[in-house]
Simulated scan of single mutants.
Amino acid sequence: MPEEKAGVPKTRWTRLKDEWGRRLEPGEQAVVIAWSSFTATFAGVRALTHWIRDGHGPSGGGISLNGKHFHHYNIGIGLLAAIGAVAVRGEERHRRHPVTAIAYGSALALIVDELALLMDLKDVYWAREGRTSVDAAVIVVASGGTFVAGLPFWPHARRVLRS
């Protein structure tokens, strides 16, 4: 039976939020949120780029500025610069804020998604060899990181969601 406060039973969502705060310190919460954001952003960008590559979306594939393709790692680098400013100059409450964690995870995903381009200094983004396995590997690693980061929380979340 859900706990009651002033005669009103707590919802599953409220009990889940309570467990989140009870089981994870703010820094641990930020890590779980960052891993989750990385996983979701990486998977979303992969799906979007495949969709564009299959002939949907904007002609020429993606964002262009002055006729040149604008790679999404640039957005990631800009986001990381902003997160760096928060880390160096921001208040402590901003450093572990969920929005900061989301921006950090998303920024890393945007950069990791185009890592081959950055390392080889040429556009090998769509080379067939290994692209699918690399996509799958990064998603598995990202999901695993999210799971491991939240280990103090997941068993309690499961219990709350089952009741």
Rank of each mutant, 00 (worst) to 15 (best):
V148D: 05
G150A: 13
W126E: 08
H156P: 01
D135N: 15
G145D: 05
K122L: 03
S133F: 10
A142C: 03
A157R: 03
D135W: 15
L151T: 11
A142H: 04
V148Q: 04
L121Q: 03
V138D: 12
W154V: 00
G130H: 08
L151A: 06
H156D: 06
R131A: 15
R159V: 11
S143I: 15
I139T: 00
D123C: 02
R128H: 14
K122Q: 07
L151E: 09
L151V: 11
R158D: 04
M119L: 14
R158V: 06
L121K: 02
R128K: 09
R159G: 06
G130C: 03
E129Y: 10
E129T: 08
R159W: 14
P152T: 11
L121D: 05
D135K: 14
D120E: 11
A136M: 15
Y125D: 07
V141M: 05
A137L: 14
K122N: 08
V141F: 06
W126P: 01
F153S: 03
G145R: 02
A142V: 04
R128P: 00
V141Y: 03
F147C: 02
R159E: 12
I139C: 02
A142K: 01
W126S: 02
F153T: 04
I139P: 00
S133Q: 08
P152Y: 08
F147Q: 01
L151C: 09
Y125L: 06
E129W: 14
D123I: 02
V134M: 13
G144A: 12
V140S: 04
V141R: 00
K122S: 01
V138N: 06
D135F: 15
A157C: 01
A127R: 09
L151W: 13
V148M: 10
S133P: 01
P152E: 08
V134A: 10
G145A: 06
F153W: 14
T146Q: 04
T132L: 15
V124L: 08
Y125W: 13
R159I: 07
M119S: 07
G130K: 09
A136D: 10
G150F: 12
V140M: 08
I139H: 01
G144T: 12
I139A: 04
A136S: 12
A149R: 04
L151M: 12
D135Q: 15
V141H: 00
A149F: 15
M119V: 10
A149C: 08
A142F: 08
S133E: 06
V140H: 06
L121R: 05
V140Y: 08
W154Q: 00
I139M: 03
D135M: 15
A157D: 01
D135H: 15
A127S: 12
R131S: 13
Y125E: 13
T146H: 02
G144R: 06
F153K: 03
A149H: 02
V124G: 10
W126T: 08
I139V: 06
A137H: 05
D120T: 13
K122I: 03
S143G: 14
A136Y: 13
H156V: 08
L121H: 07
D135Y: 15
R158L: 11
D120A: 09
A142D: 05
V138H: 10
V138Y: 15
D120H: 12
G150I: 11
F147V: 11
I139G: 00
A142S: 06
R131Y: 14
D120R: 14
H156M: 05
V124Y: 08
V138T: 13
